[in-house]
């Protein structure tokens, strides 16, 4: 529904290193900007309420839930999504580790898991399996791949 009396706002931000300028409704979440406005469908919508982690992206290197963030509040920020990881056909080594450790079944949670894990490693918290499991608790996997997800992250992080 569009209401013509409503404000629209200009927004400039970087996504996977590319500058974007868009005009959006202020109520657009970062998740809806990525998926609906920019066609970046790699970031998933699970609960849309901060409870599952499927929408995890990095903003200025820090992992957040894109579903609980207003796009307009990301003005000038640097957003990284799953689409930014592979170099052509060559997977990012963490993506490769997920494949090697069988860390997914349906794959719906996987982009969020991988972005969250990159955030975790950036935080310097990937110390051991128990610590990784605790720090990844914001990412649920309905297929129950958690043990393999932890193993993939530990292998990549050298923990």
């Amino acid at each position: 529904m569009t209401d013509s009396s409503r404000q629209r706002v200009a927004l400039a931000l970087a996504i996977n290193g590319r500058r974007h300028r868009v005009t959006i409704e202020p109520s657009t979440t970062l998740l809806d900007l990525l998926r609906d406005e920019l066609g970046l469908f790699g970031t998933k919508k699970g609960c849309d309420m901060g409870a599952c982690g499927a929408c995890t992206v990095l903003v200025d290197g820090r992992r957040i839930n894109a579903c609980l963030a207003l796009a307009v509040m990301q003005e000038g920020r640097d957003v990284q999504t799953i689409e930014g990881l592979a170099e052509g056909e060559a997977l990012h080594p963490l993506q490769q580790a997920f494949v090697e450790h069988d860390a997914l079944q349906c794959g719906y949670c996987t982009p969020g898991q991988i972005m969250s894990a990159l955030g975790l490693i950036g935080e310097g918290r990937a110390t051991d399996a128990a610590g990784i499991a605790e720090q990844m608790s914001g990412n649920l996997c309905r297929c129950g791949a958690h043990p393999n997800i932890v193993a993939a992250i530990a292998a990549y992080a050298g923990a």
Binding site: T56, R63, I64, G138
Partner: peptide
């Protein structure tokens, strides 16, 4: 409290 993602925001 919450998750790492929520605590970051």
């Amino acid at each position: 409290g919450a998750s790492a993602q929520v605590r970051n925001a």
